[in-house]
């Protein structure tokens, strides 16, 4: 563990807490893409199967359990508790265009041809693009509640923090994980447009609005 990864994980944790807080306090999941949230459940479940056979640390164990359970809880909030506030008609990104290519990529690029390793690769690839339905929705509506933008900023920062972590691990442990690194760079790059508006508008106290 190093500070970069710790900051990344804390940022990831914060993003989920911000999202749950937003849904609970506004009693609404308006502006949140159900498809993106469902993709995150897929990501966590397919990646953390090693919970059942591989022990890393107590920290690692609890974080994995937290990510799986909190992402399922968010789906519950969106589909059951606050269902009327979820508007599927603006959540129109075709996720089969993400699932298919990620599955193919996972079959080509993996560290070992076993079910769990291929699923692990799949989850890494899928995570890198899972935010697209959400960003697509933001693009369509052209605006977002401030709290939603804080959620997205924390979520984007998480993988960005992992990049210096990978550089650090390369120097100190001589470890390189090419699948995670390339996907992580793609994942972070997808947020660049968002970050630009977030830093120049939201953090200056203005509303998040995309130019018409």
């Amino acid at each position: 563990m190093n500070l970069f990864r710790l900051f990344g994980d804390m940022s990831h944790l914060a993003s989920i807490l911000i999202l749950v807080h937003k849904i609970q306090t506004t009693r609404s999941c308006r502006g949140i893409s159900f498809k993106t949230q469902a993709l995150y459940v897929t990501v966590f479940v397919s990646r953390y199967l090693d919970l059942f056979y591989d022990w890393v640390s107590l920290y690692n164990f609890f974080m994995k359990v937290f990510f799986i359970s909190s992402s399922c809880y968010i789906l519950y909030l969106m589909k059951m508790k606050f269902r009327p506030t979820n508007d599927p008609s603006i959540d129109t990104f075709r996720i089969e265009y993400l699932l298919g290519p990620c599955a193919i990529l996972a079959l080509i690029f993996h560290y070992k041809f076993t079910v769990t390793e291929v699923l692990w690769s799949f989850s890494i690839f899928l995570e890198s693009v899972a935010i697209l339905p959400q960003l697509f929705m933001l693009q369509r509506t052209g605006e977002a509640e401030t709290i939603t933008t804080h959620y997205l900023a924390a979520l984007g920062a998480y993988r960005a923090f992992y990049i210096p972590n990978w550089i650090y691990r390369y120097w100190t442990e001589d470890i390189v994980d090419p699948i995670a690194v390339t996907s992580g760079i793609v994942q972070t790059a997808l947020y660049l447009d968002f970050f630009y508006v977030y830093f120049t508008k939201v953090l200056q106290g203005q509303k998040f609005e995309l130019p018409a």
Partner: peptide, 10 residues
């Protein structure tokens, strides 16, 4: 059966 790469990150 060990992983070729350590999956110790989240």
């Amino acid at each position: 059966e060990g992983n070729p790469v350590k999956h110790d990150e989240l």
